[in-house]
Amino acid sequence: MSTPALAAPIPSSTAAPSALAGTLTTYRVPLSIVALCLLPWLLPSQALAVNVLIYGVLAVGYNLLFGYTGMLSFGHAAFFGAGAYITGIAIGRFGIPWFAAVPLGVLCGGVLAFIIGMLSTRTRGIYFSMVTLALAQPIYYAALQASSWTGGENGLRGFTVESINLVGWKINFLDPVNKYYILLAFAALALWAVSRILNSPFGAAIEAIRENERRARTCGFDIELTKLLAFTLSGLICALAGTMTALHLAFVPLDLLHYQTSGMIVMMTLLGGARSFFGPFVGALVFLLMEDVFSLWTSHWQIIVGSIFVLFVLFLPKGIWGTFLAKVIR
């Protein structure tokens, strides 16, 4: 005699992971913001939490191009540094309020991304990567030579945002906790923008290009324009991370524009998981924790971090967060 009732629990058990995955996708922005709200209280210091927030936004912007569009760039330090320098110069040299200097820095970073994107997106594969690297390096040397504006090797100094007024409420921006949650508002804006992009027809277009560019062209997509827009949007978000760095440090080091920073962005994105929404923050957290720990042991901490990175690429190609989603949730 058959007992069909015993088979009833099977569909519900298999449906649970997919339902959870759907929930994480639908509410990825608020869930990410909630997780980031808890970060200062889970890490050893608020300063580390601020750095994770800033570099997480930087990796989120890069992931839009690399993870979702499939374009490996080695020049995104240019947009990161441009956003920081323009914000610092606007505040320190021209006395522009921070709330106007921030969008100015983002806009200039976006314009730079558009210009470099027009020249680099005409190429593919490793040629694209090398062109982005080659086009970003003149920005570094321009900042190095324009020492009267940028401070040269010593970096840009002489600007500090001590307090922020919100509807008549004065907030001490020098307090690490206040600083973190104010910068979190910028991170939330970046996450919302990326989520909207991914949920739009444009988001479907960039993922189609990543999967099969030739087929996407056959389907009628304007490949060149779509790549250029993706590159520009990615640069805008990276420039936003640069403005956050300027506000945080009240100092813009020249190293922000160096190609090593571009390499660090790639590592953070891959460690957390390219193509995953929250993965860049996980990658930034892991990278910065490794840097803090191993730099106490040796001045050659990059060798250890690089070796660990190679192991991640070989055995966890989806990154930490991407592997978690693949193995546990789905």
Rank of each mutant, 00 (worst) to 15 (best):
A274L: 10
Y27C: 06
G67N: 06
F221C: 00
A274F: 06
R28P: 05
V293N: 01
A190M: 03
A241P: 02
C108Y: 04
V177K: 07
I164R: 09
V252I: 08
Q46L: 01
V111K: 08
T232P: 00
L228R: 03
S13N: 00
S147W: 11
F287Y: 15
A8D: 05
L271E: 01
P9R: 10
I197N: 05
A49L: 01
R330E: 06
E153C: 04
A208C: 02
Y55N: 05
Y141G: 00
Q145W: 11
K170F: 07
I33G: 01
N63G: 13
I91N: 04
L325Y: 02
A142I: 15
S200F: 01
A113P: 02
W98K: 01
F80N: 01
F221N: 04
I329E: 01
G151D: 09
E213P: 03
G75T: 13
I304T: 07
T3N: 15
P4K: 15
A216S: 15
F277N: 00
P176R: 12
V131H: 14
L144V: 12
G168E: 11
M1F: 12
L53A: 11
A82G: 00
R214L: 10
K227G: 00
F221M: 03
A15C: 07
Q137A: 10
V102Y: 07
M267D: 03
A230Y: 04
D255S: 15
F312C: 13
T269E: 04
R28H: 06
F128C: 13
G61T: 07
L42K: 03
T226K: 10
H258V: 02
H300A: 14
K170H: 12
F80T: 08
V310S: 04
V177W: 13
A7V: 08
L233A: 02
D222H: 13
L183I: 10
I164E: 09
W169C: 09
L107I: 14
A143N: 07
M130T: 12
P138L: 14
G61F: 15
T261I: 14
I96Q: 03
K327Y: 04
Y127T: 13
L174V: 03
I304D: 00
H258K: 06
G110P: 05
M244E: 13
T226H: 13
I96L: 09
S148N: 15
F324D: 01
F159N: 08
C108R: 08
